[in-house]
Computed example of a mutant assay.
Amino acid sequence: MRILVFGGTTEGRLLAHALAEAGQNVTVSVATPLGAEELGCAQRMRVLCGRLSAVQMKEMLEPFDLCVDATHPYATEVSANIRTACRAAAVPLRRVRRQASEIPAGSVVVPSAEAAATFLEGTQGNVLLTTGAKELHAFSRLERSRLYARVLPVCESIITCEREQIPHSNILALQGPFSRQLNEAMLQQFSIAWLVTKDGGAAGGFSAKVEAARSVGARLVLIRRPEEEGEDWQVIVKECLEQ
């Protein structure tokens, strides 16, 4: 079976390596060089790097027997493109679903980054943004000195922070997930009153953020996870190997 995995997540890496180690031919498509670096290499596994349109995905899919969408739970546009491409190429699609977290008591739950920014306009205190560089523009209405952006340590993220006029002293370019202790240290170091996050689940270190915020008295602003259906990556691996 020829399998194409759209990955870049912990589950995508685990699934791809498990299939390759079991003798399956796996191609993994990731958006960035950082995703390729994290994926590593293995026999029977080929890695492709670059962002793709639905048309490009469709062309890539044509030689494959199965597609697995193992992208991030919040990557709704990418998942929509994958579904469109699979229908056009007549390739079966399986979706990996990351287990959602229990919403902590006292969290401010909002539907989007824009809604988070609207809420924060009526507050005081420093804000730690852990939602990624792509979401920074949504917070442009807030005073920049309040904003601390934790982003991936790649040029693209730094350029985005500069474009959004985040002070260089407020740019935290680090690769997660982070421990509770490191989260606590950051929250304390920068006197953070509000922690803006997505529900990245266990793989994204969500519980460590929650525990750290609770420990230092920071409030959580949680961008609600989009509703979706899917399966555990281990189920998909098992069924692929049984075919």
Rank of each mutant, 00 (worst) to 15 (best):
Ala218Glu: 05
Ala75Ile: 11
His168Ala: 09
His17Ala: 08
Ser107Trp: 03
Leu147Asn: 06
Glu228Asn: 07
Gly50His: 09
Leu66Trp: 10
Leu174Phe: 15
Ser107Glu: 08
Gln165Trp: 09
Thr130Gln: 05
Val237Tyr: 03
Leu15Glu: 02
Ala173Asn: 09
Pro33Ala: 10
Ala90Glu: 14
Asn25Ile: 11
Arg97Gln: 15
Val96Phe: 03
Ala89Trp: 02
Phe119Gly: 02
Cys49Leu: 06
Gly8Tyr: 01
Trp233Ser: 07
Thr123Gln: 15
Ala16Cys: 13
Ala16Ser: 15
Glu162Val: 11
Met1Phe: 04
Met57Gln: 09
Ser145Asp: 15
Arg214Tyr: 02
Val109Tyr: 01
Glu102Trp: 01
Lys134Thr: 07
Leu136Pro: 04
Arg224Ile: 00
Cys49Tyr: 00
Met1Thr: 07
Glu62Asn: 00
Ala113Asn: 11
Val235Ile: 12
Pro104Thr: 09
Pro177Thr: 12
Ala218Thr: 07
Ala16Trp: 00
Ala133Met: 10
Ser29Lys: 03
Thr27Phe: 04
Thr10Met: 04
Val151Leu: 12
Arg180Gln: 14
Val30Phe: 02
Leu52Asn: 05
Gln24Ser: 13
Ala116Phe: 10
Leu19Lys: 06
Ser157Thr: 05
Arg44Met: 05
Met45Trp: 07
Ala116Lys: 10
Glu228Tyr: 02
Ala100Gln: 15
Glu62Thr: 14
Leu128Ile: 09
Ala88Asp: 14
Gly217Met: 04
Leu120Asp: 04
Leu172Tyr: 08
Leu61Cys: 11
Gln124Lys: 14
Ala193Asn: 09
Ala36Tyr: 01
Thr197Tyr: 07
Met60Gly: 01
Glu164Asp: 13
Cys41Val: 14
Glu242Phe: 05
